[in-house]
């Protein structure tokens, strides 16, 4: 499976925001539910604009939602 080196806390943040559903988040940021699922499974790295929109929904800084794992820490 192809996974991205960009990790995210979307699932946790959804849980802490009144157990927001994937569909609700998808509607708020203007993407499909499948895209939210793909991001949560680290199968898709969003664009910078979408990343900011997600951070805005949760009212947290971008780095609290997304983090970058450099290649050398994977090994």
């Amino acid at each position: 499976m192809t996974t991205s080196r960009i990790r995210n806390n979307i699932r946790t943040l959804r849980f802490h925001h009144g157990e927001m559903t994937q569909q609700q988040l998808a509607e708020k940021v203007g993407v499909t539910r499948q895209t939210i699922i793909a991001m949560e499974q680290d199968k898709y790295s969003p664009s910078l604009e979408l990343a900011f929109r997600i951070a805005l929904v949760f009212k947290v800084p971008l780095e609290e939602v997304f983090s970058y794992q450099p290649e050398d820490t994977n090994t």
């Binding site: 203007g30 993407v31 499909t32 539910r33 499948q34 895209t35 793909a38 898709y44 969003p46 664009s47 979408l50």
Partner: peptide
């Protein structure tokens, strides 16, 4: 029907 085409699509 989720007929929107987002950035991933």
């Amino acid at each position: 029907i989720e007929d929107i085409q987002d950035e991933r699509d």
